[in-house]
Simulated assay, not measured.
Amino acid sequence: MKTPGQIHTYYHHVRAMTLVELVIVIVIISLAMSAGLAAFSFLTGRSSDVLIQTRMVDLAQLYADEILSKRWDEDTGNGGVPTYVGCRITDDVENRDKYDDVDDYNGVSNEAPAFADQSLAALYSGYTISVSVSCDNSVGANTNGAKRIEIVVTAVNGQQGRFAVYRGNF
């Protein structure tokens, strides 16, 4: 058993944090947490941009697939035979559901996306599509060139994505 003198000596050597040290630790931890939270909030604020850009690419791909599945020209037969020699942009003044060749999409401007599955329409509300078609003789093995199809997708936040595809005469 310890004598009263030994007990006093034992407690005298135990070191605890002072109030000043405790306040300094709290300040350091709060500064570190505020810096970490600021960086985290910056990163999470930018995550919506990725979603918007992904949707823009999806819409451009949807339109590109639809346009590239159409005939080269109004005078090109179904299946590409007979082929139309040359490159021209014609205006057939057709309704969207009757578009049958690449040229018909020229001049589509600020159109709301058209979906076969209307359940997707809610995901893309506020997005608009513009399409222009032009002849480009600088590409392709065909001496008559190709048709350059430029698709511009405008997102809800005003951000624009420009996508270009080429359709050859085959």
Score class of each variant (00 low, 15 high):
73 D>M: 01
19 L>Q: 12
14 V>E: 09
119 S>A: 12
35 A>K: 03
47 S>G: 06
128 T>I: 06
127 Y>G: 00
151 I>H: 02
41 S>D: 01
141 A>F: 02
70 K>W: 09
3 T>Q: 03
168 G>Q: 06
71 R>M: 07
150 E>L: 12
104 D>G: 09
85 V>L: 10
84 Y>K: 10
85 V>Q: 13
61 Q>M: 13
51 L>I: 08
28 I>D: 06
137 N>E: 07
9 T>D: 09
30 S>G: 13
23 V>S: 14
143 T>W: 02
97 D>S: 11
4 P>L: 14
28 I>R: 07
155 A>W: 01
28 I>C: 14
103 D>G: 09
141 A>W: 01
161 G>F: 05
86 G>W: 08
62 L>M: 10
90 T>F: 00
57 V>W: 00
60 A>V: 06
111 E>H: 05
130 S>V: 03
92 D>R: 12
76 T>I: 09
125 S>D: 05
95 N>Y: 12
117 D>G: 07
55 R>V: 01
170 F>D: 09
17 M>F: 15
71 R>C: 02
73 D>P: 01
24 I>T: 15
4 P>I: 12
1 M>L: 06
3 T>R: 04
45 G>M: 06
31 L>W: 08
59 L>Y: 03
165 V>E: 04
139 V>A: 14
79 G>R: 04
66 E>V: 07
38 A>G: 15
43 L>A: 06
36 G>Q: 05
55 R>T: 01
19 L>C: 10
77 G>A: 11
135 C>K: 07
137 N>C: 00
48 S>P: 02
55 R>S: 05
8 H>S: 11
24 I>V: 15
115 F>R: 08
14 V>K: 11
138 S>K: 02
110 N>W: 00
20 V>G: 11
128 T>R: 05
62 L>T: 05
133 V>E: 05
48 S>H: 13
41 S>Y: 10
94 E>W: 08
156 V>W: 00
156 V>Q: 08
146 A>C: 02
54 T>P: 00
114 A>Y: 12
67 I>N: 01
15 R>E: 12
15 R>Q: 14
31 L>E: 05
79 G>P: 01
38 A>R: 10
138 S>T: 14
132 S>F: 01
142 N>T: 09
160 Q>M: 14
131 V>P: 01
97 D>V: 10
137 N>L: 13
102 V>Y: 04
111 E>V: 06
140 G>V: 04
113 P>M: 07
55 R>F: 01
153 V>F: 00
46 R>E: 06
133 V>Y: 03
10 Y>H: 05
117 D>N: 15
80 G>P: 05
50 V>K: 13
103 D>W: 03
109 S>I: 03
65 D>C: 01
50 V>S: 15
2 K>T: 13
117 D>W: 07
18 T>D: 11
112 A>R: 02
10 Y>L: 12
48 S>M: 12
153 V>Q: 01
162 R>A: 10
17 M>A: 14
93 V>D: 10
131 V>M: 03
165 V>N: 02
104 D>Q: 07
97 D>R: 04
168 G>E: 09
